[in-house]
């Protein structure tokens, strides 16, 4: 357990969060569920499998889980396979904030697969923050796939971050079905080095009237790393607003590809995309800066504004 706590720290977690009794948490090492703590308003169903675990998290109707739910997925040995099949249901009028740390500090031949289904029922909210640490060898393959349904008036925010250590091979796939007046925010930050390979596919289908979304990717690649970001936003209903904002910075021999695909099927829908940070409406950015804001703050404010 001590070793896991150390690994947990490396991926940005705080061990106290996993120990605290009034905080919901779960620790999965390889295919062993080492710890699970539930609090009122939350149901966790869990089962160890041959290669990992099957997990279902339910946030009960009307329950607002104030303290973040902490999840830790790890493989401590150099080699191993971990397949997590998860389902998260946030029932009507409920809300939760889930913080997942995925830590593989010694990975030399590790594979981590995450197959997630996430359902947000009417008027609910979920923030899912996922922080990864893959060690310094690059001998790892991480494949997170998520299918998300963001119900009417729901707010779904997901934040994926892998910025320290190596990436290895990363293959993210997100598909979001956004219902009426919902808000979806996907933020991905990855820093690729050496021979890392980053593949990201994030797709938001704005299917309900008035739905809004932002897909924001911040990718840096150096050495021989390769990244490919495919951001798809479909405006399929009236008055939807979508924005794709992808910035990639490359150094050395790295290669980066950004493919924004925006499509609109309704004349009152608006989906925009930016391929670089500087191109977030330059005048807007400079106006905010002329009021004394730092550039990053100004960029955030413009995008936050879109989701307001």
């Amino acid at each position: 357990m001590e070793e896991i706590m150390e690994a947990y720290k490396l991926s940005g977690g705080m061990p106290e969060d996993l120990k605290s009794e009034d905080t919901a948490s779960m620790v999965v090492e390889g295919n062993r569920i080492l710890k699970s703590n539930v609090i009122d308003g939350l149901i966790i169903e869990k089962k160890e499998t041959k290669t990992g675990a099957k997990i279902k998290i339910i946030v009960e109707k009307g329950k607002k889980i104030k303290k973040p739910v902490h999840l830790c997925f790890s493989i401590l040995p150099k080699e191993g396979l971990q397949e997590i099949i998860s389902e998260i249901v946030v029932e009507e009028n409920a809300s939760a904030d889930i913080k997942a740390c995925c830590t593989f500090p010694n990975a030399q031949e590790v594979k981590h697969i995450m197959d997630a289904k996430i359902f947000l029922e009417k008027n609910s909210a979920l923030t899912y923050t996922e922080t990864h640490f893959h060690g310094s060898f690059g001998g790892i393959e991480v494949v997170p796939k998520s299918k998300v349904v963001v119900g009417e008036n729901c707010v779904f925010k997901t934040n994926f971050s892998l910025v320290t250590g190596r990436v290895g091979r990363l293959d993210i796939e997100y598909v979001v079905d956004a219902k009426k007046n919902s808000v979806t925010e996907i933020l991905t930050k990855v820093y690729g080095k050496e021979e890392d390979i980053i593949k990201i596919k994030e797709e938001v289908r704005l299917n309900g009237e008035g739905a809004r979304s932002v897909i924001k990717s911040r990718i840096a690649v150096k050495d021989n790393a390769v990244s490919e970001v495919l951001n798809i936003t479909e405006g399929n209903a009236a008055h939807v607003r979508g924005h794709v904002d992808c910035t990639e910075i490359i150094k050395d021999n790295a290669r980066a590809k950004a493919i924004p695909i925006v499509s609109v099927k309704n004349e009152s829908a608006k989906v925009t995309h930016e391929a670089a940070i500087g191109t977030v409406d330059k005048k807007g950015l400079e106006t905010l800066m002329a009021h004394g804001l730092e550039k990053d703050k100004a960029v955030d404010l413009i995008i936050e504004g879109l989701l307001n």
């Binding site: 504004g305 879109l306 307001n308």
Partner: peptide
């Protein structure tokens, strides 16, 4: 202050 001031959605 710009000749044609910028617009901000949501602000």
């Amino acid at each position: 202050s710009w000749q044609e001031p910028a617009r901000f959605e949501g602000l």
